[in-house]
Computed example of a mutant assay.
Amino acid sequence: MDRLQNIAIAGASGNIGKVVVKELLASGFNVTALQRPSSSATFPPGVKVKKVIYDSFDSWRVALEGEDAVISFLVPPATDYQNLAADAAIISKVKRFIPSEWGMDTTILGDTLFGTLLSDKTKTQAHLARLSEQNGFFSWTGISTGLWFDWGLENLSLGFDIRNKIAEIADSGNERFQTSNLSFVARVVVEVLGNPDQTADRYITIASFNISQREILALVEDISGEKWTLSPYRVDEAQKIAEKALERGDFENAFFPLLHGRLLRDGAALALQPGDNFATDVLEILEESPADAIKAWLSQAK
């Protein structure tokens, strides 16, 4: 299959979407932002904007006419509309659908808590697989990135509070986890669209690197020359509090403790193993240095 040139993106103004849009434009792709009618988000020059009513099949169908690929950066509850978008993509002869994954590997969640919370994503995977079997021109690619590293440092999601020099360490802090910088993810997306046969009907796992919280802390202190205060906590205890928040419908305060409970707890064993990093092993994108991202983060805080 030739390079997929015309790319439609749902969620193009989000944290990861805007980084991918920038990389696609720089790589010569034609980019269309699929935007809710009520949205006032703006986009870089060269991005075409089409309004889409997410619960309308006809709206998706019209918006996807002439597009080669759809990338979804939608977040819950909007991910519920991905199957509708995929059905419309078939009618509009779209060749590739990249659903909203961009985090933990959802193919191994099973009957865990996150298996329930993210069931809409696994249902979409199954739906896309069926559509691919039924339509020879159509395929899909799922991309697991692990935690977002540079974004996570800036937004406290990795447990590092730069303002107060406090590191919240889960259990021992020695558990290594899969993580990617947003620009690294964007380069992977460009390669997937530029060489679509490599990833047709596949779920791939990628990472800038594996790292632990203790390793991050050591780099932070070495680069900054400052000692940080440790605030250790037990994952199991944080989980109980988060689950109660979830029962109250407080998803915002429950999400990161639950996420850390899956990925950072001692013995989680979810770091990518040798041969599992599609970005470095197949696409030959070089693994990145965590020190570079940490230096950039520390310099921005000065």
Rank of each mutant, 00 (worst) to 15 (best):
F138T: 12
I108M: 03
D105Q: 02
E133K: 12
G136W: 06
I98M: 04
D111W: 01
S100Q: 13
F114A: 12
N135Y: 04
L128H: 05
N135Q: 09
G110K: 06
D111P: 08
S144D: 07
L113Y: 10
Q125S: 10
L147H: 12
G146H: 09
E154A: 03
G136N: 02
L118P: 10
G115L: 12
T106A: 14
F149T: 02
G146R: 08
A129N: 14
I108V: 11
G142A: 15
F114D: 07
E133S: 12
W102N: 04
M104E: 06
H127Y: 15
E101C: 04
L113H: 07
I143P: 08
I98D: 15
W148L: 11
L117F: 02
Q125W: 07
N155T: 13
W102F: 10
F97G: 01
N155H: 10
L113E: 05
W151T: 05
I108F: 04
S139M: 02
S139G: 00
S119L: 10
N155L: 03
D105P: 03
I143V: 10
E133H: 01
Q125K: 05
D111L: 04
T141A: 07
L147M: 15
N135L: 00
S139Y: 04
I98S: 04
T106C: 09
D120H: 06
F149Y: 15
F149I: 01
F97S: 07
H127I: 10
T116R: 10
R130G: 02
A129I: 00
T124S: 13
I143L: 06
W140L: 02
L147K: 13
S139L: 04
P99K: 09
T116V: 05
M104G: 11
I108S: 11
T122P: 06
L128W: 04
L113K: 08
G146I: 01
E154F: 00
F137A: 09
G103D: 08
S100I: 13
P99W: 02
I108L: 05
W140R: 00
W102T: 03
T124G: 08
